[in-house]
Design a binder for these strands. Structure first.
Length: 512
RNA sequence: GGUCCGUUCGUCUAUCGGUUAGGACACAAGAUUUUCAUUCUUGAAAGACGAGUUCGACUCUCGUACGGACUACCA
């Protein structure tokens, strides 16, 4: 069967999008683009209890930042609109009833409280309660009540749910694009709720199958946590008579904690100092979570890093643009085992991308930082400063520390360096160097360097002695690029001024 | 507990029966250097365990152990 590739990313707006979710979205997107298909964004807000205001907007902004484009869905519309399940609520009841009529589902009238009680009883008896073939005919369901009783209960406003009538002792044979063939006996499964009258909404299982069918989804690429419900989903397709257009499934390995056991959570990030969300987030209760974007990561690096967590191209290439990822991606090369998230590697990827940025691109990140420090310069100047220092950058948040001396004269001198350099003949030497610098017409990096080096040679100073003393004067600390990058950038007047300042501040004498 | 999935250096991974088991991050040493970095070179570092199939197994099968997910009127 050769049909159009249509995939969907279907998050639930219960909070900020976790990086595991971003990776799922990414793989869906790569797969869609690789096969010339469509990427759908569907919002699965069928749990009115857990709905969080702002989460949907957050998801959309996150995908946009990541460069994951949506072809169809919430925010962009499309032929199967609406794409928000809460706006499709009237669709689902019809399908639930269709299943009941066909004998694949039934009404159940027990309350959540009654079920909790049954669970507790079973637990204290050392057993696990399962709502399945063994108990469904002992409970108030349409399987045992008469048609009149059922209608009467519904009419008088009793709460009810529709449950799937899981067949007994049947082996469901499934195929997963990543995991291969999987078989499960239905007797180990329970009768899942498909629809709840309390809020007139379907549960995930029903909504998911109905919408994937209606939206003509060809491939379901989702997290491994869904593998246990795959048999139910297979059975639902069969119950609806949709097996011929049933999508193919691919269950992605989970993202695990950097250390210890379990899947990656927000707590891990807080504890170990890395974000687990793409963007900064403030919950309605005021709780905040850091994000990759605000922590100084480039979207391209973030995506590159995520792409390789659970997938690899089979070559030794590690740096990939989005287009290269699209060209190289295949589900066959997704690994089966969960991948531990590695914060260090995320930083390494970001550093690689920072090192390769042009001055123009750097200026884009640099300007807001400069403005925040009250500095107004052209993009060219901002880009040049960042460009000189980019080899040392890991995150965009490093930029100010690395370049501030280009824009601001030192107000104090690092003690360790001052102690080491501001002694002996150095203060006098610097005063003499000031004269040399003052006499230079062409203050370009190369020319200044030639002249100063020649002077050093004739005077018999050591290069380190002169340069480090000059560094103390111009930068104030043991950091920065080559000194002639600094002299050229800040210019002659500023150089002389900073030398005058240090001589006036630390006095012309040595301080040891 | 039950069901399902998984298991190669500390971590991410390559290997699709025959390799000195390769790469990357992190780590260590060295080189370069006017500071700090960058960069380069080198090093240490792995097939969970036990059976079987086979001339030959990291690779196939089974078992064990360990890890994970699921087990809601949540997704």
């Amino acid at each position: 069967m050769n049909r159009e590739v249509r995939v969907r990313f279907a998050p639930s707006p219960t909070g900020p999008l976790h990086i595991g979710g971003v990776r799922t979205a990414l793989y869906n997107y790569l797969f869609a683009r690789r096969h010339g298909g469509k990427m759908i964004l569907r919002i699965e807000d069928t749990d009115s209890q857990r709905f969080v205001p702002g989460a949907e907007e957050y998801i959309i902004e996150s995908l946009k930042w990541c460069g994951i484009e949506i072809d169809e869905g919430v925010g962009v519309g499309g032929p199967h609109a609406p794409y928000r399940q809460s706006e499709r609520r009237e669709i689902y009841l019809k399908y639930a009833k269709q299943l009941i009529d066909a004998g694949w589902a039934y009404y159940a009238f027990d309350t959540p409280e009654e079920l909790d009680k049954l669970r507790n009883e079973a637990e204290s008896a050392g057993k696990t309660f399962a709502y399945n073939y063994e108990v469904r005919e002992k409970l108030p369901t349409s399987l045992v009540l008469t048609k009149e009783e059922v209608e009467e209960r519904i009419a008088r406003g009793d709460q009810w749910v529709v449950r799937f009538k899981m067949p007994e002792n049947e082996v469901v044979k499934m195929d997963d694009l990543i995991r291969g063939h999987v078989e499960v006996n239905t007797s180990t499964l329970d009768d899942k709720v498909l629809y709840k009258s309390a809020d007139a909404l379907p549960t995930y299982h029903l909504a998911n199958i109905v919408d994937d069918h209606l939206m003509e989804v060809s491939h379901v690429i989702r997290g491994e946590e869904w593998l246990p419900s795959l048999p139910l989903h297979y059975l639902l397709y069969r119950a609806f008579g949709w097996t011929d257009t049933q999508p193919e499934f691919a269950h992605l390995p989970l993202l695990l904690k950097p250390t210890g056991s379990g899947k990656l959570s927000k707590r891990d990030g807080d504890k170990m100092g890395f974000p687990v969300f793409p963007l900064f987030w403030t919950s309605p209760t005021g709780e905040t979570s850091r994000g990759y974007r605000e922590d100084g990561y480039l979207a391209e690096a973030f995506i590159n890093m995520l792409s390789l967590l659970g997938w690899n191209p089979g070559t030794e290439q590690e740096i990939f643009s989005m287009q290269e990822l699209i060209d190289a991606f295949s589900l066959e090369r997704v690994s089966k085992a969960g991948a531990r998230f590695q914060p260090d590697k995320a930083k390494w990827f970001n550093a690689q991308y920072m090192h390769n940025l042009s001055d123009e691109a750097l200026a884009v990140y640099m300007q807001p930082i400069l403005k925040a420090h009250g500095i107004e310069v052209s993009d060219a100047v901002a880009g040049k400063a960042a460009g000189i220092m980019k080899e040392r950058m890991t995150l965009t948040t490093d930029m100010w520390d690395l370049t501030s001396f280009f824009f601001v004269a030192p107000t104090e001198y690092e003690e360790k360096l001052a102690k080491k350099q501001w002694k002996g003949e150095n203060p006098a030497m610097l005063a003499e160097l000031r004269g040399v610098l003052e006499s230079i017409e062409d203050f370009s990096k190369e020319n200044t360097e030639n002249i100063v080096r020649a002077w050093i040679e004739t005077k018999g100073f050591s290069l380190g002695q002169v340069m480090n003393t000059l560094r103390l004067a111009l930068v104030g600390a043991g950091k920065g690029p080559g000194m002639f990058d600094v002299t050229e950038f800040i210019g002659k007047a500023e150089c002389l001024k900073r030398i005058d300042t240090i001589i006036a501040t630390l006095k012309g004498d040595s301080i040891n």
